[in-house]
């Protein structure tokens, strides 16, 4: 019945089905069976640690994965009715920077250091909109104004190195949004920024999204950013989605032991108290991915059955989890008597 309610909605903007990515010389899939749905105007946050496959997923969508060494094993990504993975490069180039755009963590590496910022934005407009130089420059100026860069007329003719980190990230956002894309992918857009500048940039992204109704896929490791930005969340671990759902569901009813471990690893902003409850060990190396649940070796709830990969089950309300033990209260009944569980439950 839940799915029925969504059937009546218009088709999603982006529907990724069963994306798997493999690299030459690595036996396991580095992205394994990832499926995502994104509606117009929606913000999806993909959260996970280094090597979880979140950036690979984004690069694959943009057609930016170097192939080889990467090989796509399977999957479809239907964006505005077309499969991004099954179209000629020329067609993809017409979509990229136009209907979908990407911003990266470090704008210094993605802006051309030898070209003035205004020209770089204008170039993106001219490539897709068939306008002349003056019109493109006017659009670039308008975009710099919309991302609230002070003195935009002057900034048009500056080089990236003349701007601060926060300004460069704004310029990147201006370039990405110059052609009014329907989808913006942002890979750790504020990780390199100071906390007050991060707040400015996140605020700007929210405002622009409201104005343009663009959908946003935001890749981050910061659960605080997720809580502030996301409508839906996807938690990835070692190439697989372990939990996904509406942001409130995932934060208020976390199901996967990895999600819970990640949340309890983050220092709480509440009053100080004791040690952090950590996740032991490290992520399995790419060439030694276990067959079954990839988190099992670090999971305090793991048992013999975790040698088989758990499917991503729907718990209702689009909340999905890949764990044999979920919900954990029933998976580990003997713990109800444990003093730590009793103390906190009261």
């Amino acid at each position: 019945m839940v799915s029925g309610a969504h059937m009546t909605e218009s088709t999603p903007l982006l529907q990724v089905t069963d994306l798997s990515i493999r690299f030459a010389g690595v036996p396991g899939n580095l992205v394994d069976g990832v499926s995502l749905t994104l509606n117009a105007g929606e913000t999806l946050c993909v959260v996970g640690e280094s090597g979880c496959g979140k950036s690979l997923t984004a690069l694959a969508l943009m057609g930016l994965l170097p192939m080889p060494p990467a090989r796509r094993m399977s999957g479809q990504a239907i964006f505005e009715g077309q499969d991004l993975f099954d179209m000629p490069l020329e067609a993809l180039k017409d979509i990229r920077g136009n209907r979908m755009a990407m911003i990266f963590q470090e704008p210094m590496t993605s802006l051309n250091p030898a070209i003035k910022v205004g020209e770089q934005i204008a170039e993106a407009v001219r490539r897709h909109k068939g306008v002349n130089r003056e019109q493109a420059r006017a659009r670039a100026l308008e975009m710099l104004r919309r991302v609230r860069i002070p003195a935009p007329e002057k900034r048009l003719d500056e080089y990236p190195h003349q701007m601060s980190g926060g300004m460069r990230q704004r310029a990147m956002i201006a370039m990405a949004l110059a052609n009014d894309p329907a989808l913006l992918i942002a890979d750790e857009p504020t990780t390199a920024l100071d906390v007050t500048v991060q707040a400015q940039v996140l605020d700007l992204m929210r405002t622009l999204q409201r104005e343009t109704n663009a959908a946003l896929i935001m890749i981050t490791h910061d659960l605080g950013v997720v809580a502030e930005m996301a409508d839906t969340v996807v938690v990835m671990y070692a190439g697989r989605i372990v939990e996904a759902g509406p942001v409130r569901k995932v934060f208020e009813d976390p199901q996967h032991p990895y999600t819970i471990g990640l949340m309890s690893s983050m220092p709480d902003l509440g009053p100080r108290g004791g040690r952090l409850v950590t996740i032991p060990g490290v992520v399995p190396p790419a060439d030694a991915m276990p067959e079954g649940c990839r988190f099992a070796a670090r999971c305090p709830f793991a048992g013999a059955d975790c040698a088989a990969a758990p499917p991503l089950r729907d718990l209702g309300d689009r909340h999905r989890v890949a764990c044999w033990r979920a919900p954990l209260e029933f998976g580990a009944p003997d713990l109800a008597a444990h003093p730590a569980a009793q103390g906190a439950a009261s």
């Binding site: 934060f251 208020e252 009813d253 976390p254 199901q255 032991p257 819970i260 471990g261 949340m263 309890s264 409850v277 032991p280 305090p300 709830f301 954990l328 209260e329 580990a332 713990l335 444990h338 003093p339 730590a340 569980a341 103390g343 906190a344 439950a345």
Partner: peptide, 16 residues
């Protein structure tokens, strides 16, 4: 619910 899961996680880690 989140509080309960956190407690379970902590308890299970301590036990293991």
């Amino acid at each position: 619910a989140a509080e309960r899961r956190f407690a379970l996680y902590r308890a299970m880690r301590e036990q293991r």
